[in-house]
Design a protein around this nucleic acid. Structure first.
Lengths: 360, 360
DNA sequence: TCCCGAAGTTCGATTTAAATG
DNA sequence: GCATTTAAATCGAACTTCGGG
């Protein structure tokens, strides 16, 4: 082989055999020591130290493929996001990442772009890589029964974050939507608002129903009347219109109805941003003339002018919770036990900022 | 249902040997056919078809570990982000993801949280996984010489996105900062603004100097005088203050100086958001009384009220370019050629929205 | 039976060298 | 020599089994 070609060959990888040779022990012993296998109990400290010293000196790094091939463990989990650009994802992703990091797992992140074909291809790629579990971060997507079936077929621990899923054989982590919506309305009500407009979520989103339920239950208990003229719905097809634009248009529509309102409760922060813009366009100042409250507490909410009062989803915690669910699943599976699906519902938190104010 | 059950008969993994047995050929032949190796030339179409049919029927999926172990290729690339929550990352990540997807590579995403220890640990983990290349997305971090040295030591194709890096032995993809800043000032100037305030970037960021250079060069060519009283700098330590908060405080400081200005050019969008809030607090309406322009065009810029005029970095394109750089590097390395470092500078684009307006 | 260490097999695919007609 | 196919070696670590003290 010519010298030039040989030159690139990066510092020939040092294997367990090299360590064995240099230390005078067999590959077996080296393996047992370095991977701290159960049998390592029997090996005297001096042997261990000698082997470890040699390993370090040679810069030995175990080959993860060989290890994975033999042990059937990848120490990787697949993370599927339906749309990276949705700010709803970022903090959840951070929560996932932090927890995986602590557990020494590596995330393989895939962005489905809301396309079925990508979903299928990525799922296949992830399973081919033998990810040990799947974390799916659903935000806007219309969750087709077929997608769920595909996920179930994977036969590995799977958790969905951000979408209620009681019935399915897949674990889930969601915020308590009903409580959150209740809290939001409670906030507006306590500030003295009585004429309140609502932008509801689309029916196809499983979050929509519980949020509306929370609103009705609070209204009922507080004796607040909900005016049908002040209630509008986000469109069913997320593709057609972002919730920002939809919020904008629906608010314009509300204004056209000439039914006065002093506060607006939006389905989520994006919708709220759209609403604020429409109000502002119409010369209505927020919060002086109209309070606006969102849901989620995405990153931009704090940066907005006025900063957005909203119901925070504990996104980092939801990400961490998702990880702990699949970690449990992995451990169960290792012990040959069935891993059963669990459903967690985390409490939201009201974040009062500048976009809401007392009604005189 | 019997039909459905047949769909995934494999509980035990089906290997190349199973396919060989069922098809009546040897594992060697099967491997050659299914991986479409050079030798496949000699294999008659009929044999190929038979093998492929059997493989499909059995649901054969090659074991990626075995393949990677033998071929020494992981088909994965490491992506390091210094702070996921920075909205600057999202679109770049999407660009990276899209391009990797097309090339059938999988990204392993790691979030360094601006911590050195995480950087080091993650770098080690990625190299242990034998990622074939590294894409580093630097945003705010103080790019220590040691980090760069660590990256160079990796000996695999590496590209840094978002940070100028001419001197180093690492490829880079950046926006043309000088041109961008020039364009921003040109915009304000064309609108009739003459008393313009500037919030500059910290010196430690390599972007700061070229941006300021662009501003000075435009000012010089247009005969615009820069008033030192209207120039402030973001703090050097990013940890202490987010650029949003810093933008807020620095704008308050500018206002205290009582030196009138009709426009403000912020170092980036986050700074601009902070500035708008400070102006708004002070009762100064944007853009009626003061125009504000940012830099980057992060996601929230379009959602803001008023929507933010800004200089867009072509972030998806930068991500894609980064991928194409490392893909080239990988191919060079496969051919045992040296891969040399390249430096790309992409053109920014002015995005005129509502936060700027002509000065009467 | 306990302790210490090693030989040999296995994981599943790729690849080299060689065997057929 | 040619087209076609394959046995056997290999990648690097982990595990099973075994032997001697």
């Amino acid at each position: 082989m010519p010298a030039a070609a040989r030159d690139y060959e990066p510092v020939a990888m040092v294997t367990i055999r090299d360590v064995a040779k240099k230390s005078g022990f067999s590959p077996t012993t080296v393996s047992i020591v370095l991977s701290n296998a159960p049998l390592a109990r029997y090996i005297p400290a001096e042997t261990k130290q000698r082997i470890e010293k040699v390993a370090k000196r040679l810069g030995y790094r175990p080959n993860s493929f060989a290890r994975a091939l033999r042990s059937r463990r990848s120490h990787a989990v697949g993370v599927m996001v339906f749309d990276m650009t949705d700010p709803y994802c970022t903090l959840i992703l951070r929560g996932i990442e932090s927890s995986l990091y602590q557990a020494s797992y590596l995330p393989i992140l895939t962005d489905v772009h809301n396309e079925r074909s990508r979903f299928e291809r990525y799922l296949e790629m992830l399973l081919d890589r033998r990810v040990e579990a799947l974390i799916v971060l659903a935000n806007w997507l219309f969750l087709d029964i077929n997608l769920l079936a595909d996920l179930e077929k994977s036969r590995i621990p799977t958790v969905m974050i951000g979408r209620e899923l009681r019935a399915e054989a897949i674990s889930s982590v969601v915020v308590d939507n009903e409580l959150g919506a209740r809290t939001a309305l409670d906030h507006l009500y306590s500030l003295g608002h009585r004429k309140i407009a609502f932008i509801r979520g689309p029916k196809m989103l499983t979050d929509s129903a519980p949020r509306w339920k929370g609103i009705r239950s609070f209204a009922h208990s507080a004796g607040l009347e909900l005016d049908a003229e002040l209630i509008v719905d986000l469109p069913e097809s997320p593709q057609a219109l972002s919730s920002f634009e939809a919020g904008y248009q629906l608010t314009e529509e509300l204004l056209l109805r000439k039914r006065p309102f002093t506060a607006l409760l939006a389905f989520d922060d994006m919708t709220a941003f759209g609403a604020i813009r429409a109000l502002s366009k119409a010369g209505i100042r927020v919060p002086e003339q109209c309070s606006v409250i969102g849901f989620d507490d995405v990153g931009p909410a704090a940066l907005y002018t006025p900063s957005l009062t909203t119901v925070r989803q504990p996104m980092e915690a939801m990400g961490s919770m998702g990880v702990s669910v699949i970690l449990d699943g992995i451990n169960r599976a290792l012990e040959k036990k069935e891993f059963d699906t669990v459903h967690h519902k985390l409490a939201p938190e009201l974040v009062v900022r500048e976009s809401t104010r007392a009604q005189q």
